[in-house]
Amino acid sequence: MALAVLSWIMAIPLLGFVTGLRTMMPMAVLCWFAWLGYLPVDGTWAFWVAKLPTAVIFTVLAVGENIADKLPKMVDRVSPGPLAARLIVAGLIGAIVAAGLNGSGFEGVFLAVTCALAGAFCGFLLRRELVRQYSFKDWYVAVAEDIFTVGCAILAMGVITG
């Protein structure tokens, strides 16, 4: 019971938040947890995330996103296109986790999308200020953000799967 409550009040919002930082990494982590059998999505509409090709595809997309993020001409995450992608993927993650927990899909989507919006803007503003005010190199901040995203996604999925 306590893990179920933690999943809804901490883990799903955390997955949404880090989706605001990196669109594909939380989805890749979720797919690996589902493929390993920790997130029970068999028999639900979200069965496809537990397939090996799905996990591999999202991992390749996540790696590509992490590489592209370090390029100087990359568009800001709060621009309309990237922001919309983050919100869509966050909603999908929230719905998948809710399906795996036999919970309300609407609540999962709402929590994840709301927190993805916060994550996108918080990450954008924090990274910008660390680079401008404190003269940190953007590449170092981006790598720290990558590590934070992976760690938080694994933590959240660990809470969700018990």
Rank of each mutant, 00 (worst) to 15 (best):
L21R: 00
L6T: 04
A11C: 03
W35S: 06
D42R: 11
F47E: 10
F17W: 11
L39A: 03
Y38Q: 13
V5A: 06
P26E: 11
M24A: 11
G16Y: 03
T23R: 14
T19Q: 13
V18L: 06
L6S: 13
S7K: 04
G43K: 11
G37E: 08
R22F: 06
G16M: 06
W8M: 10
L39D: 04
F33S: 02
T19C: 04
V5P: 00
M25V: 15
A34R: 10
G20W: 04
G37F: 03
V49S: 10
W48L: 12
F47N: 03
L15I: 04
L14A: 15
G16S: 07
K51T: 12
W45D: 09
V29P: 11
I9F: 14
L6Y: 09
P26K: 09
V5I: 14
P26H: 11
M10F: 14
V49R: 08
I9C: 15
L14T: 14
P13W: 07
K51I: 03
F17Y: 15
A46E: 03
P13S: 07
A4E: 02
I9Y: 12
D42Q: 14
W35M: 10
M24H: 09
M27K: 09
M27L: 15
I9S: 15
L39F: 09
W32G: 12
A28V: 08
L3I: 01
G43W: 05
W45T: 09
L3Q: 02
V18R: 03
S7T: 04
C31G: 00
P26D: 07
T44M: 04
V41Q: 11
M24P: 00
W45E: 09
V18I: 07
L39E: 06
L6W: 08
Y38I: 00
G20I: 04
W45A: 15
V29D: 11
T44C: 01
A34T: 06
S7R: 02
L21C: 05
P40A: 08
S7E: 00
D42C: 01
R22N: 15
A34Y: 01
W48N: 01
K51R: 13
A2W: 11
D42I: 01
L21S: 09
L15G: 05
G20S: 07
L21M: 10
A28I: 10
M27F: 15
V5F: 05
L14S: 13
M27Y: 12
K51E: 14
L30A: 14
V41I: 08
K51Q: 13
A4F: 02
R22H: 13
